[in-house]
């Protein structure tokens, strides 16, 4: 895909309530460009729902509850089918990681299992940023959040085993027609994944890595670099699962060491001088990278 092929229309108005450098708003802008005007957006409670209060998109936008977007869009899908109005309309859910991996997982699982026709995009900023940065099921090991503070006894997220919830693999286990991971650092990849998702009959899921400058303590000018480094370090692996077949969508020639990704972020400051924690994080990243790579076609 080439940049020339990207829709020049802006579906989000200029000016909104997002933090400076917000990657989720950037990603949402690109998702809407990928889908175009015949789209209905269901927005699960999260940062984007607040951002959208004053953003006024050029597509219908419905902020629902924290955990029910996949159920609401199921009803819309069914209703439009019965009314003979389903053709040509993209049904899109946008949600955060808390709404997706935690409180809304049941509704999402049900909607995928029922083979409802919708596109679900999860912007993963690895914590509940809208409520001030509490840990979620996708918060990585050692990360500092407001509910995993760096204390005198426990230092950051301390779950054992240390790997976070793997939403893409959870979704893939539902035999979903299409699922993919992507990153706000690769907008063309994001647009391509969303277009592919839209072409699918039935459910599709996009997991978009979305580093949060406010919550993670990243300089706003470095947000995209941090996101790109996550991919280059193999912390985030870009691949798609189509009819059960896993394909890599972004190759990494030589993986960068984990420190290069962590040093962008204040939430890891306490581990940069902790060789034991660094080794543990690196080991987890290596093992998952190898496991996913082995599963790729």
């Amino acid at each position: 895909m080439k940049i020339k092929e990207v829709d020049r229309e802006e579906y989000l108005s200029l000016g909104n309530l997002a933090c400076a450098g917000c990657p989720e708003t950037l990603g949402f802008r690109h998702v809407l460009k990928a889908l175009g005007p015949n789209t209905i957006v269901i927005n699960q409670t999260g940062c984007l729902a607040v951002v959208m209060q004053m953003a006024v998109p050029k597509v219908p936008h419905f902020h629902v509850l924290f955990e029910n977007s996949a159920a609401v869009i199921s009803g819309i899908d069914d209703a439009l089918r019965v009314r003979g109005k389903r053709e040509g309309v993209n049904l899109l859910v946008v949600a955060g990681d808390g709404g997706t991996a935690d409180i809304g997982l049941s509704a999402l699982s049900g909607a995928i299992e029922r083979n409802q026709d919708f596109i679900y995009v999860c912007f993963d900023n690895e914590s509940y940023m809208n409520t001030g940065g509490q840990r979620s099921g996708t918060t990585p090991f050692c990360a500092r959040t407001s509910t995993t503070p760096v204390g005198k006894v426990i230092r950051g997220e301390d779950r054992v085993p240390s790997l976070r919830k793997d939403m893409l693999e959870i979704v893939a286990a539902h035999h979903i027609p299409y699922a993919a991971s992507t990153s706000i650092a690769y907008p063309l990849d994001l647009i391509e994944r969303v277009r592919k998702a839209a072409a699918v009959r039935g459910p599709s899921y996009i997991h978009c890595h979305s580093p949060c400058p406010t919550g993670w303590g990243i300089d706003t000018s470095e947000v995209v670099n941090a996101a790109r480094t996550a991919v280059q370090a193999g912390v985030v692996i870009l691949y798609e699962v189509e009819a059960g077949v896993r394909r890599r969508t972004k190759r990494v020639a030589k993986r960068k060491p984990i420190e290069e990704y962590l040093r962008f972020q204040a939430r890891y400051r306490h581990v940069l001088d902790d060789p034991e924690a660094l080794a543990r994080i690196q080991k987890d990243v290596d093992e998952r990278y190898e496991a996913i790579t082995a599963a790729l076609a």
Binding site: V72, G110, E113
Partner: peptide
């Protein structure tokens, strides 16, 4: 009956699906 049965995974989702259906004008 020409209707869709949305075989949801909870009551929370049952009413949410009805709300979605009503949001596009259907009788739910």
């Amino acid at each position: 009956l020409d209707a869709r049965l949305c075989k949801v995974e909870s009551e929370h989702s049952a009413l949410s699906a009805c709300a979605g259906a009503a949001a596009v004008g259907a009788r739910a």
